[in-house]
Simulated assay, not measured.
Amino acid sequence: MTKKSKSAPAKATATPSSSGAGTRTSDGKSPAGKAGGNAKADAAHLNTTNNALVDHAYLSEAEFGTVAETLQRNLATTISLYLKFKKYHWDIRGRFFRDLHLAYDEFIEEIFPGIDEQAERLVALGGSPIAAPADIARYSVVQVPTETVRDARVQVSDLVADLTRVGKGFRDDSQTVDDANDPATADMYNGYAQTVDKIRWMLQAMMDDERMN
């Protein structure tokens, strides 16, 4: 008597997300976890097989989504702020050239570590930073100038406005991620807010020099 062979169980098919993502990954396999790839998704949640195992540690998926959005935005903003300081560092001319040329690099040294720290924090929570130039520009709240600005007062005034916005953003996001059960990221943001506030104060104080008019 011939035994009937057991048929292999059918593979589960993922339900399409509300963002319109497909039910399969690029190589035809079923993705695990939440997939979407919409504008607010971090790279670890794009619809690809290699991102199937995403562990958010003690955060729920919803909490991670909240925290990841702030980390992605602040990462892009910090990169843009670094590039803007460098652009003005290269372009500054006139009587304040030496003071600002050197000061901008000193401020960069304080800002720069936050780039790696925020990216690695996102990875540690089961995410992955989106870092293509177009994505940096899309997420950042700081715009890197494409034109040449040589005037000291114009540069400093522009940076003070940016730092005011960035400092407030870190403060607000600290509260947001704390409410999302992530006090560690909140502590990071509090430290960045303090650094940004200090740099803003120093630049604003320079504008009190009448020779800058």
Rank of each mutant, 00 (worst) to 15 (best):
M1Q: 01
K3W: 00
S5H: 00
K6L: 04
S7R: 11
S7D: 09
A12L: 15
A14K: 15
P16D: 00
S18C: 08
S19I: 04
T25V: 07
S26C: 06
A32R: 12
N38I: 05
A41P: 12
H45F: 11
N47L: 13
T48W: 11
T48Q: 14
T49G: 12
N51F: 14
N51Y: 13
A52F: 03
A52V: 04
D55W: 06
D55C: 01
A57T: 03
Y58A: 11
Y58G: 03
S60W: 05
G65M: 07
T66R: 08
N74M: 13
L75E: 04
S80D: 13
L81P: 01
Y82C: 10
K84Y: 04
H89S: 08
G94F: 10
F96L: 04
F96T: 03
F97I: 04
F97D: 03
R98T: 07
D99E: 11
D99Q: 14
D99G: 03
Y104N: 01
F107S: 05
I111S: 09
F112I: 08
P113A: 06
P113I: 07
I115A: 10
D116R: 04
E117T: 15
L122G: 06
V123E: 02
A124E: 03
A124D: 06
A124Y: 03
A124V: 02
L125H: 07
L125T: 03
G126Y: 00
I130P: 09
I130R: 15
A132K: 14
A134R: 12
A134N: 08
D135G: 11
D135L: 15
V141R: 08
T146M: 14
T146Q: 09
T146Y: 12
E147A: 14
R150L: 10
D151W: 09
D151Y: 09
A152N: 04
R153K: 15
R153Q: 08
V154H: 07
V154T: 13
L159P: 04
A161S: 13
A161D: 12
D162S: 12
L163E: 01
L163Q: 02
V166G: 02
K168W: 03
G169E: 11
G169D: 14
F170A: 02
S174V: 00
T176F: 10
V177K: 01
D178M: 06
D178Q: 09
D178R: 08
D178I: 00
D179W: 02
D182E: 08
A186G: 15
A186I: 04
Y189C: 00
N190E: 09
Y192Q: 08
Y192D: 04
T195K: 05
T195M: 01
V196R: 00
D197F: 01
K198Q: 03
I199Q: 06
I199S: 00
R200S: 00
M202A: 00
L203M: 06
L203E: 01
A205Q: 03
M206T: 02
M207S: 05
D208A: 15
D209S: 05
